[in-house]
Design a binder for these strands. Structure first.
Lengths: 238, 238
DNA sequence: CGTTCCTTTGAACATAGTCAATAAACGTGG
DNA sequence: CCACGTTTATTGACTATGTTCAAAGGAACG
């Protein structure tokens, strides 16, 4: 977690936003300035969205965070992970569905997302893409939990993580590093940690992935991607 | 489905947006004008978001719609229902997660959501609230599918439907009319229709609800709401 | 080195799914 | 208004997937 010492060109935020829209020099300058004022939130600390300018979104310059629902009986559901480079939209508190808190998973560096002076700028366009992507991933999470088996859930989730990390330049080829325990994975994919463990073993037995500590390597990425039954065509009920 | 014959003041869209923000006379006039140009989409027809002005969102003036993922092997997951009065945000096609199509469940009346000239207008504020609410309900759907039992899922889902319908003035007290088969409910809550059927029977046995055709009455709304383990407090992992 | 957190394993159990058949409700044309 | 075909709801027996509980290894870290 040393956002300050990174050369700016390698920051996940830069890679990601530049991949989502064409950024002008002015956009880049703003991003760089914002990055300089990044704040560090230590792992396990809740991210207070209201400390800074309330209505602004944040950029996650580095590190991982998660949004979670905690039920009164202790059950937990991780709603989404926020990965390096992600835009973090402000979620006003008035949440009829209970608080969806945002917590740092590793030490993270966040800064206020710079606004664009002119409308239709590259930055605004990148933010819009990012929000669209985010909603798509929420949809995917719903389908994963509602209709996929444990095996499929984990494969699909791994593919999603890889896809997202790749967009920010945070993985090398088929290898990625995921700072999560099996229990956290379980809370994300709606299983128990015991079952996550068994399912990961099945994936290794089937030679789809290889696990070394927190590093996961896809041995057969193509099979993984096709194994997951992606949504198809138009969805008019029979 | 006769949006044209409704007196404007009773339109769900009006009730809902007015409940989310204070609307000016200008806002009301715009809404009324938009409502006059509403288009009818018959039940079971896909709603084409690109037919009209591409980037504009739509208002669902009347009727129900749903967004769904259809997997290649036939499994389906309803991602969200769109109820009378809801704002329908444009979802550009480039959806890496597969198409999330939007389909009319009943005949529906939709119109282009009028834009606000000045920023910070009541309309824009209502749209913003609506989007925030929508995201909260996606989160809730995730938690429902990931961590609640079948019984809890259905209770929670019924409560959500009631809450949302109430906001648009589309239910009378504890009674609401839901134009859905048990199979569609199953695709929404991630169960089989057989199990939905059995679970609804359990709810009736427990005297929580009463079902008459498509009309559902909460016999003990308080218990229903408290039965569901709502997210609590801050969510820092142990 | 000892503590703590994380992973792995086994056996028993529970919830929800599957398959198949029947009953009820609905819509349509005569 | 009734008969018929279709969709939807209901039921039962059996199966499967994932959970629970408890314990034992391992790895990481001060």
């Amino acid at each position: 977690m040393e956002a300050q010492t990174f050369s700016f060109g390698h920051l996940p935020t830069f890679s990601r936003l530049a991949a989502l829209a064409t950024l002008s020099n002015g956009d880049l300058a703003k991003l760089e300035a914002a990055g300089r004022s990044a704040r560090i939130v230590p792992a396990r600390r809740e991210v207070d969205m209201y400390e800074k300018g309330v209505r602004r979104s944040l950029l996650l310059m580095d590190g991982w965070a998660y949004r979670m629902h905690l039920l009164s009986d202790g059950r937990r559901q991780i709603l989404q992970f926020l990965l390096p480079g992600d835009l973090i939209d402000n979620l006003e508190a008035q949440d009829a569905n209970g608080p969806a808190s945002l917590t740092a998973l590793t030490d993270i560096a966040v800064c206020v997302a710079p606004g664009a002076d002119e409308d239709g700028s590259g930055l605004e366009s990148a933010y819009a893409s990012s929000r669209r992507l985010e909603r798509g991933y929420l949809f995917r999470q719903i389908t994963r939990l509602g209709r996929l088996s444990a095996y499929e859930r984990i494969v699909d989730w791994l593919c999603e993580m890889h896809e997202r990390l790749a967009l920010s330049g945070c993985c090398e080829g088929n290898r990625m590093t995921i700072p999560l325990t099996q229990e956290i994975i379980a809370d994300a994919v709606g299983l128990t940690s015991v079952h996550v463990n068994r399912t990961l073993q099945a994936l290794r037995r089937d030679r789809l992935i290889q696990v070394n500590g927190r590093t996961i390597t896809f041995l057969d990425h193509t099979t993984c991607q096709s194994l997951v039954n992606r949504p198809q065509g138009s969805a008019v009920l029979a």
